[in-house]
Amino acid sequence: MLEVRALDAGYNNKAVVNDVDIQVDDGEIVAIIGSNGAGKSTLLRSVCGLLPVLDGDVIYEGGSIANRPVYQISRAGIAFVPAERHLFPGMTVDENLTLGAYPKRPDSDRRALIFELFPRLGERKRQAAGTMSGGEQQMLAVARALMAIPKLLILDEPTTGIAPSLAVNTYQSIATLRDHGIAVLVAEQQVPLVLSIADRGYVLENGSIQLEGSAAELRDNPMVQKAYLGVA
């Protein structure tokens, strides 16, 4: 459904991500792992239209979406949850969710699913997003993205600022999205956690893909074990 081809992306016309090829198939959970500054966020931002595609192409459902406006990419079915979340702080949980569905009316089944995945949000529908805890805001950011009924959900480090026990819950929730036909592309530094639910993964370092494979292959790879899994 998503194919990133020989993508260059970066800032001020200087690429920090070079020649990256990535693919996400229908209903798949794909992880991008890499250390700080590897270029994970840069890659995801350019796929979503927040950064220009300097070279290469991004193909979504058969057509190029490279350098299309963010709002069009969003309406085409790609929901992005950036690491900075970009919630609407002065609006309630409910209003944030309503806007997630924009331009459609909020779907009641989808709302029910969200409150099932994140019961905390159901208890706080009238609370202003800006006054919620970091973990709650992260849940809301994912929930808002899901309100768009996306075909592809892209997450940038969804567990930043979340306690380790809750991070496990977050990934369990993400894993259930597979049953709803939502494909997931997720950048993460908590490698064991993300590989426990992913189907496949890519290792991104210094702006290019170093390694790719199934989650099991990556877990068993000596280089991955040494660099990210703390195995000597």
Binding site: C48, V70, H86, F88, M91, L99, Y102, P103
Partner: peptide, 14 residues
């Protein structure tokens, strides 16, 4: 939403 967070609004399809 655009007043509060323009990037967030664009990501919501606005």
């Amino acid at each position: 939403s655009v007043i509060q967070d323009e990037v967030g609004a664009r990501l919501c399809g606005i």
